[in-house]
Computed example of a mutant assay.
Amino acid sequence: MHNQVYISYGSNLGDIQANIQHALVLLTADSRIRIERQSAFYQTTPVGPVSQADFVNGALKLRTDYAATELLAVLQAIEQACLRQRTVHWGPRTLDLDIIFFNEEQFQTPALTIPHPEAFNRLFVLVPILEICKADFYQKTAIEHQINVLQATATQAIKRLEEVDDGR
């Protein structure tokens, strides 16, 4: 499993904790994916024009031998298994799984852009990833800087909810 990937996840509909746990079970069950680190859960305010409930967000560091587009299809299938409906852009959802970083690659296809194009605009992505990345992660300094910039604007709220003892 040679690809190092950072995934952001979130939920704000239904049984939020159960949605996230179901996704983690499905990811763990895939023999081509190994979760290496998991962040704590964070309560976050939604970003965008849609009025909705707060989210619970977090991040995963994983290894996989899937190509990026293959992994995207796996993540979208997991979202569907958790009853994700894409009715309102940036609207409420049972589960959202996004590939943020895939190795150190940068590319754009009609279906996928790496790094995720909105990652550096969202505390709910950056704070959990900073928690689980190592000191030598190629985006660590940029993430730290952007967290400071976003926190200075005070437009996004993020609150750590709990530690995750994932045994990794």
Rank of each mutant, 00 (worst) to 15 (best):
G91D: 07
K159W: 04
L27F: 01
T44F: 03
G58V: 11
I16C: 12
D166T: 05
G10R: 07
L123M: 05
N148L: 14
S39C: 10
R122A: 02
Q17K: 13
V149S: 06
Q106Y: 08
Q85L: 14
I16K: 14
I114M: 00
I78M: 07
L26F: 08
T64I: 10
S51D: 15
D166Q: 11
K61A: 13
L75S: 06
E162P: 00
H116P: 03
I35M: 04
E79R: 09
A111T: 13
I129K: 01
N19S: 14
Q85Y: 11
N3D: 11
K61M: 11
S11C: 09
V56G: 01
I35V: 11
K61N: 11
I16F: 03
E163Y: 08
I147C: 03
A40I: 07
T45N: 09
G91L: 07
F55A: 08
L71M: 05
I35T: 08
T64H: 04
F102Y: 15
M1Q: 12
L161F: 04
A18E: 14
A77S: 15
L112Q: 06
I114L: 07
R37L: 09
G10K: 04
D15Q: 12
A53V: 00
F107A: 01
I100H: 02
T155H: 14
L126P: 03
T28Q: 15
H22D: 06
Q139C: 12
H145R: 13
I129N: 08
G58C: 10
L83Q: 15
Q38I: 13
P49C: 10
N57T: 13
Q76V: 00
Q21N: 13
I132A: 01
G58D: 10
N121A: 12
R84C: 09
N148K: 12
K140C: 04
A142C: 06
